[in-house]
Design a protein around this nucleic acid. Structure first.
Lengths: 189, 189
DNA sequence: TGCAGCTTCCTAAAGCTATTAGGCAAATGA
DNA sequence: TCATTTGCCTAATAGCTTTAGGAAGCTGCA
């Protein structure tokens, strides 16, 4: 019997690819086994269960996203940083829809704390340092940015903006302009 | 044999309640059958399949949400309308998380066209008439509002803002202030 | 080299969900 | 009252998940 050479890492990676191809919700232990031409039960030596697989894909995606964001932020500040960061987020979602969906997968508190989600929100704060916001306004702004990015990408991916003018890219650009302007003129009490 | 009195409408309603209790993704034909103390196959006289059930719950939720939004908008304009509309959205999501999740369920084009989703976006446009935006800026603004509402509520529901100061309600209020200000001072080209 | 022990993958089995086909009994209405 | 329609049932197939236990491959050490 030739062994397939399964490892947790290979499985999670293949799971992420599978997610991008068929959707994160459709990622299943069975489908993954088929992809490796192996019996389903065999995966249970490498994965605790189906939930474990999804959690690991989510953590992988969060790392990838944070890595790309960190690259994009290097050497940038102000609006330049804002748009670079936002574009990374949107591009990642469009090129890796399954992985992006994975980043929205609910994590239990320990997993969440150990994830790159924190890194991502630290980067958001770093961008805001280019604007002049004191707490608690900075936190409000972090939440606003998170909401807009997550919300826009979610609607775009769901097809909300296709088949209707203007182009989604144009709205995205104008929304980032508006956000920049909002951050520069954050309303006081 | 006493009949259970199933109808498509009762099933969809119970499905919506089930969604609020256990989550939209966990709504299953089997669970619904258990709730009516009836065999699973019996539901297939009233529902085409599992997908059909979910679509119907989504349509129900979209109607409910649009009805509430319409009520809230009556007699309001400007920022007053904006916050009332936004609050309805957020409150609906918090009091009916399963139904809210259902509104995010992808619909095939025909179902989407027949849904109350259109009504909802018409209302967003009505609110924007209180601000001074010409096309295509109005559309950009519609998309911005949709993104912020959907994004904020999604993050809040996922627990993103709990266990951390400031209070989510405070951020929400300040974000609506910021949106109002953005709409009043929409940046030109 | 040979073999002990660990690891990998397998077979088998049970339980849950989805869906279809076909049947009997209850409700409807002529 | 009887025929027809309708509602719910049994039975069966098929897919996914998970656990238990077994056999073959690999590793390290004598």
């Amino acid at each position: 019997m030739v062994r397939a050479g399964l490892t947790t890492e290979r499985l999670v990676h293949a799971g992420a690819e599978l997610a991008d191809e068929v959707g994160f919700e459709q990622v299943t232990v069975s489908a993954l086994a088929r992809r490796f031409d192996v019996k389903v039960a065999s995966l249970y030596s490498h994965l605790k269960n189906s939930q474990d697989l999804k959690t690991r894909i989510a953590l992988l995606a969060l790392e990838e996203l944070a890595d790309r964001a960190a690259d994009a932020l290097a050497g940038r500040a102000g609006k330049d940083a804002l748009t670079a960061f936002a574009d990374v987020y949107r591009d990642y979602a469009r090129t890796h829809p399954g992985r992006y969906a994975a980043t929205r997968h609910p994590l239990d508190p320990e997993a969440a704390a150990a994830s790159a989600g924190r890194r991502h929100s630290q980067m958001t704060r770093a961008i805001l340092r280019g604007y002049d916001l004191a707490e608690p306004d900075e936190t409000h702004a972090v939440r606003l940015l998170g909401s807009v990015f997550h919300g826009y990408v979610g609607l775009e991916l769901a097809g909300g903006f296709s088949h209707s003018a203007p182009d989604s890219q144009e709205s995205w650009t104008r929304i980032l302009d508006a956000l920049d302007s909002t951050l520069r003129n954050w309303p006081g009490d």
